[in-house]
Design a protein around this nucleic acid. Structure first.
Lengths: 344, 344
DNA sequence: ATAGATTACGTTACGGGTAACGCAAGCTTT
DNA sequence: AAAGCTTGCGTTACCCGTAACGTAATCTAT
């Protein structure tokens, strides 16, 4: 078994020596910065290939004032497909510009986020992309002190630390509420979860409630579970919800996964959808189309959100002036899990 | 708009000067390596807090022979929930040991993987976790030259570069084939995709075919689409499959997402499941339970796979001797999308 | 032919930490 | 009280590239 340390790294100096030139000349050749003859270039490159030289970016960043190509990206969890898509959008775009993603899973807590920020900053990243607008005091301090470009995503923020990319969650909830009201629903329920940083979901619920009340309805029961926003909590949350409020006409869920759970519960109990109860989700996941019924939901292009976030980061890194507030938008997807017109 | 460069970083030297000690003493205090008085420690720490000093890990790694805390992790794509779970398992475990994930999305191609490997190696990572056992020649060269711990995951490899964590895909396909044969199915079909690095899926198909033929059946039609292994390809792949082979009794899919697509297609065409056709998937995704029918599938603990991969990496980094070949195992999940006993 | 510009390199210093070593002051031992 | 040890801290050198500068050789202009 070999030791992991004692790396047999080939340094630029070794390449230079083997090629019979100075370190500096080898460096110039490798960077293609000019100032060398074709003959020299060939000598150096021959040794690079021969010795299998790989540049040491640590030294490069460390040396000059040029910043690294690392971008720290914090994501609450990967269990939620929504964030997965955002991450994919970010990493692809970042990668196409020669940047690398340093991942951080914060589990929706300030504490994890703060620890991750501290660590990732010590690696001198070029910038940070953070999910959510809510951060601990010490985090804010570190972020500000770092002087780095920061892109806050997910939750649109009119006064972000630096740049914000996301959607207006309040409005999306509001639109769903207005839609359901327009279909004649008046007695509504909500099932979601609560966390340190789940402000977006809260905003959706607030918008939803506002629209429903504006329309003369009411959100009879709001359930905020201390669990992940996934299938099972949706299932048992619905059970809990309906056990005390049988008269609900329609339930709005924090996301599609939870809505699926609710759908499953209702179907298992022999309830017809949408005849007996309406189901509405949020996020419009690809799996929404798995069902024979199309889930009524709010569509957000999560991939695009990630891509735009990465683009804004690239923009900041290249010194362009970047809009502070970037709205990705959403639209309502009418489905067949709510009734399609006002009952007579 | 402030410039992203010109970072007002506080260096150890500044802390030391402010505390009236030498750089080295400040370094010792921060690392807690001993060799300083309590009085000095307080003086230094007071300045650390006051100046908001954050250590520069770049310099640390760059300086000594100690390796970094970065671990490069390559994943083919995040669109597939299977890999998402693996990544979550890796990052959580790695994080709990103070390591960071540098993500690379290879899109199942050798080319992307090779480029990513080159880049990530230039950052002097502590080790690499790669999905798949198939790599380009130049990749292999770089990996070997690096002398770094390498954990290859997903596809169990009896002679890996360094360490392998995964499952035997051939066996999993074989078990599914044998199961379907035991239920009396004889005329079978397969729908999947093909890529540079999708050897695992190929192995599953091989195992499946072997079992089916051993059992006196045959895999009449094998469809390998050039697409992502997701819902829609499953849908139209099934359409294609059934348009030329109406007599298929059961279809095995590369994964659950594709199986869902197939299920959707069949249901839309008015076919009854499992009466008219059987459907079997692979991976046992959480969404498998979204359906009123439970999908017949192969269960693999993807999260655990990721965790074990990270553990093996940690083991290698701390110089422990680590098993070369680590089988995570799988088990067949009988569902209601295939018939439950041999028809009379 | 000679001054001035250009080309093709080499030399030096530096960045932010750390290992290795040096050394003075305080403590113990006999 | 002298020798030996320990403690606490400073000094120096180094890691691997790059910026800035220096210089010898070649080329151009007059």
């Amino acid at each position: 078994m070999e030791k992991p340390n004692k790396s047999n790294k080939v340094s630029l100096a070794e390449v230079a020596q083997a090629a019979g030139v100075s370190k500096m000349t080898a460096s110039r050749v490798l960077r293609g910065s000019g100032g060398y003859s074709e003959k020299t270039r060939k000598k150096v490159m021959a040794q690079v290939d021969l010795l299998g030289y790989l540049p040491n970016r640590l030294a490069t960043v460390f040396s000059g004032e040029k910043n690294s190509t690392f971008v720290g990206v914090s994501i609450p969890e990967l269990g939620n497909e929504v964030f997965t898509q955002v991450l994919e959008g970010i990493d692809r775009k970042l990668g196409s510009f020669g940047h690398q993603t340093v991942l951080g899973l914060t589990q929706h807590t300030h504490e994890e986020e703060e620890n991750w920020i501290r660590t990732v900053l010590s690696w001198q990243p070029a910038g940070l992309i953070l999910t959510g607008r809510s951060h601990s005091i010490r985090s804010l301090e570190m972020l500000r002190n770092s002087g780095l470009p920061i892109v806050e995503i997910w939750d649109l923020n009119s006064s972000p630390l630096d740049v914000s990319v996301g959607i207006n969650h309040f409005d999306s909830g509001f639109e769903m509420g207005r839609y359901l009201i327009s279909l004649g629903y008046r007695s509504l329920g909500y099932v979601g979860t609560s966390h340190d940083t789940a402000n977006a979901a809260t905003a959706r619920l607030d918008g939803f409630t506002k629209a429903v009340e504006d329309g003369g309805g009411s959100v009879r029961r709001q359930l905020c579970l201390h669990d992940t926003a996934s299938f099972y909590p949706g299932f048992y949350g619905t059970e809990q919800l309906l056990s005390t409020s049988q008269d609900l006409e329609c339930v709005f869920y924090q996301n599609d996964s939870m809505a699926f759970g609710g759908l499953q519960f209702c179907t298992a109990r022999g309830m017809r959808i949408p005849e007996d109860i309406g189901i509405a989700g949020w996020g419009d996941l690809p799996i929404a189309s798995v069902l024979h019924k199309r889930l009524t939901s709010i569509h957000v292009s999560h991939l695009k959100l990630g891509q735009v976030a990465a683009e804004k980061m690239i923009g900041r890194l290249s010194g362009e002036s970047v809009a502070t507030c970037n709205d990705i938008g959403f639209h309502l997807m009418p489905g067949s899990t709510v009734r399609s017109n006002i009952p007579v």
